[in-house]
Design a protein around this nucleic acid. Sequence first.
RNA 1: GCCCUUGUAGCUCAAUGGACAGAGCACCAGCCUUCUAAGCUGUUGGUUGCAGGUUCGAAUCCUGUCAAGGGCGCCA
Length: 583
Amino acid sequence: MFEQEKQILDELIARFCQERSLPTGKLEWRSIPFSGEWGIAAPLFPLAAADPARTQPVPQHAQALAEALRDSIKLPAGFSRMEAVRGYLNLYYTTSEYAKKVIDSVLASGSRYGSREPEGKPIMVEYSNPNTHKPLHVGHLRNVILGGSTCNILEASGKRVIRANYLGDIGLHVIKWLCNYEKYHQGEQPGEDKTRWMGDLFAEADRRFAYEEGFEAEVRAYFARWDARDPHIHALWKETREWSLEGFKQVYDLLGEHFDRIYFESEVEEPGKAAVEQLIKSGLAEDGRPDLPVVVNLDQILGTKEEYRVVIVLRSDGTSLYATKDIPLAVMKFNEYDLEKSIYVVDVRQTLHIKQFRKILELMGYPWADKIHHLAYEIVNLPGNVTMSSREGTVVLLDDLIREATRRALEVVQEKNPELDPAQMQAIAEAVALGAIKYPMLSRENTKMVTFDWESALDFNGQSAPYIQYAHVRANSILRKVGFQQESGADFGMLTHPSEVDLVELIARLPEEVQRAARELKPNLLANYAYDLAKGFNDFYNQCPVINAEPALRAARLALVAAARWCLGNTLRLLGIRAPEVM
RNA sequence: GCCCUUGUAGCUCAAUGGACAGAGCACCAGCCUUCUAAGCUGUUGGUUGCAGGUUCGAAUCCUGUCAAGGGCGCCA
């Protein structure tokens, strides 16, 4: 926001350092952590510690240097005063100019505030990766939400992004499903909620596979026919897979997700086997078939010890594995696109596997192998550290959760805004419910486990998405009431109330928060910022009347409210959470 | 056995190596003739698992240790 001013300051300080033969480039600017006034601060401790002329302890010397700086450099334009306190040099902005700069910049950019134009090579983010013919539960949600908002944030930070989804459309789970369908549900069609119906049938097939006499044998026989490319089974597979895809589309639409590139596991199976042959030929893989599988002994090749372990790349019966397919998939990605980076949003339990196949790709000579990046996240558990498993029946289905959350949100809307029409109420309830579900998964660090429980998932109060959405609604409500048109010429020097000062500071932070969240691939930084921003706005809302303020102050506050609304709306959008106008 | 992650208020979590470790939930006491109370104010709550080390400065970095979870040759 004040890059030029900072640069001038840096030059002044550099000159000061040279005169005293101090090392340069040791100062880092941060904002002053106390509320009430805007400014930047620099700790002088590093400089003091490096000063050869130092004769006293570092803290005292830092204070002395801060005082010397304060007295020797001329206050640059844009700053109103300077002070040396406890080893820090604090510079305060000219308040009216600062507020004007921040608010004008937001109002000029609107929905683009906080974002940069995408440029450069694209980054591919692979996420979601559901299995067809299976139910979606809350565990899958974290992946989608994390991946989706990571994409939004990368885009806003100025990167081109390709959203990729790798679908598990083959394997034993599919065969089970098909076999069960043919035997017990011949000719049935999915209903309105396709994912749920597919999921129910999967659960049934899975149960039969585990408990029903003879069913496993039938499935094995069915698998053999599949392998022999039985045309009837392949036709049924294609048809039923389509049902799953349509169901996923419904869920993605609801969640606000879309993908640019879809990969199917089925399309990389044969290329995977070919890649294994190549590995064997080049001596990287040992072929133990028919008794043993094909393995790449990475530790032996690299001379490492219990670090990369041994990777099985093909079963002894010649069928493929996860690792088999990851090799051609990565090759496909880099052949098709000139990627800056290829990110895999995959849960933390697969860390070793990703490390392994990246190393195999490197050994195969692909120069882009080091561009593969694992965005690891912890899984979602149920209370008592129970892992979600459809077999154990320990799952919370996505469908059930969304339905219940929407029902509860609808109750609140009906109570608060009975005059709205039903379609609008439904839309608001959905936005609130989805936000409430998404927020806890976004606001935690990626590496921390999320424990799902109904009570907190359906809590619309406190540190939650509805709280942030509500702040947006309040800002919107004020602007709507006065028919706010972007007026110019407000005197921002009037924004001197501590909560106004805080709010301007919070708004000013968005661009750098986006950059940092993108750099570190941590949407939770932005989720926490969104909450701080909403809190700052609510504080302002409670303490500073806008509509009934006297005209000059009212104009300045209205512009501030408009800036806050853009900022809240934009931040929510980056998190993949809708920002309703009314709720 | 080897490796990874986590450990902060009763609970769930924050905190670019920087100024006094902050929120929410829960508990208790208040605030709706006033821009929507999905809100706000106040009270209570801490040896940042433990022990060392590095540093002017450590919840943050390093070493050790304890605890929980996860990964490690034919699951994905």
